[in-house]
Design a protein around this nucleic acid. Sequence first.
DNA 1: TACAAATTTGTAATCGTTACAAAGTAGTAT
DNA 2: ATACTACTTTGTAACGATTACAAATTTGTA
Lengths: 137, 137
Amino acid sequence: MKNIIEILKEKDIAPSMQRIKILEYLQNYKTHPTADMIYQALADEMPTLSKTTVYNTLKTFTEKGVLVALSLFENEVRYEYTKEPHIHFKCTKCGRIYDVLKTFKCLKNENIEGHQVIEHHVNLRGICKNCLEKVED
Amino acid sequence: MKNIIEILKEKDIAPSMQRIKILEYLQNYKTHPTADMIYQALADEMPTLSKTTVYNTLKTFTEKGVLVALSLFENEVRYEYTKEPHIHFKCTKCGRIYDVLKTFKCLKNENIEGHQVIEHHVNLRGICKNCLEKVED
DNA sequence: TACAAATTTGTAATCGTTACAAAGTAGTAT
DNA sequence: ATACTACTTTGTAACGATTACAAATTTGTA
């Protein structure tokens, strides 16, 4: 908790209750949730929470570099709180998202063919280990 | 033109006029267009073309492996007709999408930590060469 | 010519996200 | 304390890409 407040202050974000709870959720649940999932999860505890607040907060956090937004071939954005660069694997059967290749070399801040890279996302899609084992035939 | 018909037949897709025109557009314009862009471009020539047809066609093409769909952090899907694996770089200033690192080693069909990879997408974001040169200060 | 299957079309609905303005909260100077 | 300002939160309405659906059209074939 104290930790979260420090993180927000370091990024010049006022540590309001809503912001603390949202970041806390993303620290605790590494499920790459959507804005709506976060809203649903917190709505019980914070009955007056607005979905707009969740969207605003996630936008602020992403802009300030607290969170990373993921674009994984869905019509929705997913978010994660992470420190080390890694790759995402999405199973097309069960829909689960896995963090893989933790040692992945990131091109962030490098220059590729004259372009300055600020973000580097690698998205794999396929059948996950779990679903491969379950194959019925 | 003949070429396009062959491509569709090989994939078991009936080469209707709409489908031919849509694939032709993607062969000619390597701009990673959205469904709407394709629709707008073809609407003059085909006044009764329906946007639903464009969506249906792009879905069919993607499922049959004629096209590749791109998820580049926008609330819209982009499409490309391509043969060699490559990486996409999207400029956050001008919005242009570049194909880079044509020699990129693809993990397609490989096994990563037990998961079977079917698609491998690499998305870079940053400031493109063009916009870097234009910096005013 | 007739019939069945595939394709196209237009409209309405869905759903994630954003715009906007009002209401609430906090900090600061008087 | 009070008033003023800036920031944050909230709820509703709007937006825009995409999909559902059923009718209309086209195609292939008996």
